[in-house]
Amino acid sequence: MIDDGFIKSLLEKKGSLSRRESIDCLTLDCPADQLKDVVLSFRDDEGFDLLVDLTAIDHGEDAEVRFSVVLHFYSLVHRGYVRLHVLCSDNENPSVPSVSDISPAANWHERETYDMFGIKFTGHPDLKRILMWDEYPYFPLRKEFPLAGIDTPLPAADVVEVTKASVEPAPMMGGPFVSSSDGVMSDSEPRALDESWTEEMEKPS
């Protein structure tokens, strides 16, 4: 566990950090321009040298600050996690400094975050899509993007010519296929939650 004395001294040392309410681990708000400094001192001075996760949050189209990037660090010294929460100032072209030169583990995470949310990581050595193909025009984990997908051409023109295939919205009847988290395993296998409507039968309103 991370003790309160350490948190206090950390906040005194790093004036730009402020504590943020969180239901689990210690969470600190960090201004984007201070991020690299903080990550460097986390690694070299504070013992938080293991970057476990880096992702982003979309707070919704109407939110004042739409995107924030979150970084999770683990410390083998303190045996605990700390989360850095960085707000992206620009809602249209969100960007955050890349930390992949300090923590190479961030490299692919940043690419994934860019792929899914469209957040630019300035200074990243090779910021391109990692899951979707390069020409894909959308950022699928943004709130306005439908889970079923959007009509899009496939990248390979010659394959498309032969097969006439394209990206089509997936049929969503029955809702997304999910597994309920409770009950015995045989009852919680993935299935349509709402089977009252199909492609032929209208969704009851």
Binding site: G149, A165, A170, P171
Partner: peptide, 12 residues
């Protein structure tokens, strides 16, 4: 059929 993956990423 795409199975349980009714999503933007999976060919149905």
């Amino acid at each position: 059929t795409g199975g349980m993956y009714r999503s933007y990423a999976v060919m149905q």
